[in-house]
């Protein structure tokens, strides 16, 4: 090999994100570069702390790392636009924005300012809005419910719907949901939740995932690490990243369908929210993020508002003109 990178991610080895994004990327890089570049994937917490992949790259401990902008939202809210936010674009529209309408370039520019070379490696399907011990069908139902969630959704739930966002560490979610210590939880897309067993702990499954319509993962390297790569290899690695994202999303769709079939066949009751309630939830999310970007602007950081405007413009165009698409939905 000419290049070997040990690449840790923020989820444990064996999880769907690990296999579907990082391992797939390693395989694609191997094929496209004909073995000249080796990516050695590592699960969370082995080489660097799970949530400090970006820091690990910055400190030079690892050459490259795989993680999600979600973990950078607290530090810089502009990341919420890339991480996926309540009321934002779903996977179809989002992946189009990323690759065709300037989303990717915006992300790469943002990372370049932090000294990173970024490659989008993984865009996901929509998450399950909740595994719940109580049925939720209207905004009134959410009031006072203890909801394990985090990030923007936690703020939307508290400020707009009177729900009670609750922090529960990953290892204890199952137990607390099963014992009804929390009323409902959100975690990941259907195929990601299946192995966590939440459907065995609580009866109701609430869809669609308004709170997290899609999500994005990236591989980051130091700019100088990237610059040192032979010029003929760079486009191959970039193509491998893009291929991985496309394959990864399709694989998520396929696995999600299987997961939902499992849920439907079992004892769970799947509640599909009606259009009016979905609009209400989405509107709250959009309101939350536009307030956030305004606050940033007032603090002298106009970048988030500008990016959001760009994002919203495309979302509106997509909404207006995508009625021609056949989605085969019941």
């Amino acid at each position: 090999q000419e290049v070997t990178w040990q690449v840790p991610t923020s989820v444990p080895e064996g999880s769907p994100f690990y296999i579907n994004f990082l391992e797939r990327f390693a395989d694609n890089v191997d094929v496209l570069t004909q073995g000249r570049v080796e990516i050695e994937p590592f699960g969370a917490g082995v080489l660097v702390p799970a949530l400090q992949v970006y820091d690990g790259v910055k400190d030079g401990i690892i050459q490259a790392g795989h993680s999600t902008p979600s973990y950078r939202v607290n530090q810089d809210p502009i990341n919420a636009i890339f991480a996926g936010f309540p009321g934002g674009m779903g996977p179809e529209a989002y992946i189009t924005w990323i690759y065709e309408e300037g989303g990717k370039e915006a992300l790469y520019d943002l990372r370049a300012k932090e000294g990173f070379k970024s490659l989008v490696v993984g865009i996901g399907s929509s998450e399950i809005m909740a595994h719940s011990n109580v049925p939720v069908k209207t905004a009134a139902d959410l009031k006072g419910l203890k909801y394990r969630t985090s990030g923007p959704w936690a703020e939307v739930m508290r400020e707009y719907f009177g729900a009670v966002p609750t922090v529960v560490p990953p290892g204890e979610i199952y137990t607390l949901l099963q014992r009804k210590g929390v009323d409902l939880i959100e975690w990941g897309p259907p195929s990601g939740n299946l192995p966590e067993g939440f459907h065995e702990a609580a009866k109701y499954i609430i869809v669609p995932g308004v709170h997290q319509p899609t999500f994005l993962w990236e591989v980051v390297l130091k700019q100088e690490t990237w610059d040192a790569v032979a010029d003929d290899l760079k486009p191959l690695i970039e193509t491998a990243a893009e291929l991985t994202t496309m394959q990864g999303l399709l694989h998520f769709y396929a696995e999600d369908v299987k997961a939902l079939e499992t849920y439907s066949k079992g004892k769970n009751e799947i509640i599909t929210l009606d259009a009016a309630f979905i609009d209400e939830l989405s509107a709250a999310g959009k309101d939350w993020i536009s307030k956030k970007s305004e606050a940033e602007k007032e603090a002298g950081k106009p970048e988030m508002a500008a990016l959001l405007a760009d994002y919203n413009t495309f979302m509106d165009r997509w909404s207006a003109e995508s009625s021609y698409l056949i989605r085969n939905q019941n």
């Binding site: 444990p12 080895e13 064996g14 999880s15 769907p16 990953p170 290892g171 204890e172 199952y174 137990t175 099963q178 192995p195 966590e196 067993g197 065995e200 702990a201």
Partner: peptide
């Protein structure tokens, strides 16, 4: 719980 989650199997089981 950690084992089951890593092994992609049911925690309850």
């Amino acid at each position: 719980v950690m084992y089951a989650s890593l092994a992609q199997m049911s925690v309850g089981e």
